[in-house]
């Protein structure tokens, strides 16, 4: 496979996953802020969205004031924001177009349709209906695209490249969502946190990563807490969005790509294996000791894996 093709496949995976998490986060924040405890006001909700999307500076560079329709517009369909959902969809399609012959017609058509659908949204429709319709459509489309990829592509190195992008990006996004929520909690917490607010935030964290329902099920209906939420998102090896789960998947994805070549210490497979082992034997106490620092370091490690992976496989 051409390195350039691999590069495009990898980024299709990453963009699709990023689009999904960003849309889910916007949607969850927007909806849950309406019935949030008083301490969590609208302003904080908008700041949280911008923080999660790394868009604080770019938003303020071209907007004055924080209004929910402005922030939502900026993050979803603003052409001027290079990191809006719509522009990410455009980038996904450009990447797919560039490697049109390496993917199936079904996959191409689902991505192309996704592109034309998101193009159909405009400021008016967004302001009238709120972000729900848009985010819902986007999330459904990403799910369809991933399903089409799984069901129509050969499960070979090309498919594995997309999966590599998806799994790496998902792990990074989960760390970013945790960091955003920890940030929200800090922002609301002058007084010791009340039970209600506490529970609200951890539930919102789980919901933002699409894991609230399954975690309730997993914990037998016990309300979310700091311990349970963090443990579930980082260490649960059955939850497809947890960091550990995705690290393990990354290992298998890369096995297909490297064709089970022997692993040397300078290759990305080695780095991933090492990080997975570390997470495998990590206790919850180690994390909770200073969860923010832990998650930040973890995110930095994941980003470095991306850099190393590009160097090893994707330069052309």
């Amino acid at each position: 496979m051409l390195s350039r093709t691999a590069n495009s496949l990898f980024w299709i995976g990453r963009y699709i996953e990023r689009i999904e998490h960003l849309s889910r986060y916007i949607n969850v924040q927007y909806l849950s802020s309406s019935d949030a405890p008083r301490a969590f006001n609208k302003q904080l909700m908008l700041e949280s969205m911008l923080y999660m999307a790394h868009a604080w500076d770019s938003y303020h560079a071209c907007n004055s004031g924080m209004y929910d329709n402005h922030v939502v517009y900026f993050l979803t369909i603003d052409d001027k924001n290079p990191f809006s959902v719509k522009n990410y969809v455009g980038l996904t399609r450009e990447n797919a177009r560039g490697i049109r012959n390496n993917i199936t017609t079904e996959l191409w058509e689902s991505i192309n349709r996704f592109y034309h659908t998101t193009k159909g949204f405009n400021r008016d429709s967004l302001e009238k209906k709120g972000p729900y319709d848009f985010c819902k459509t986007v999330m459904e489309s990403t799910t369809i695209i991933k399903g089409v990829a799984d069901d129509t592509l050969l499960h070979n190195e090309a498919w594995s490249m997309i999966k590599t992008g998806i799994h790496l990006e998902r792990a990074i996004q989960i760390t970013q969502i945790i960091l955003s929520k920890l940030n929200d909690i800090k922002a609301t917490g002058h007084s010791p946190m009340s039970q209600a607010i506490n529970s609200y935030h951890w539930a919102a964290l789980l919901r933002s990563s699409g894991g609230l329902d399954v975690s309730r099920n997993f914990y037998g209906g016990v309300p979310p807490s700091r311990e349970r939420a963090i443990s579930f998102l980082v260490l649960n090896d059955k939850f497809p969005k947890s960091v550990l789960f995705n690290l393990q998947k990354l290992k298998t994805d890369l096995n297909i790509i490297s064709n089970n070549k022997p692993i040397t210490p300078d290759c990305v497979e080695f780095t991933i294996g090492k990080l997975t082992a570390k997470m495998d034997y990590c206790t919850l106490d180690e994390i909770l000791n200073n969860e923010e620092e832990f998650v930040l370091t973890l995110q930095e490690d994941l980003i470095q894996i991306g850099v190393q992976l590009e160097k090893q496989y994707l330069t052309y």
Partner: peptide, 9 residues
């Protein structure tokens, strides 16, 4: 069933 390449490939 051929690779589609660009000059830079």
């Amino acid at each position: 069933g051929m690779q589609l390449v660009e000059g830079r490939d």
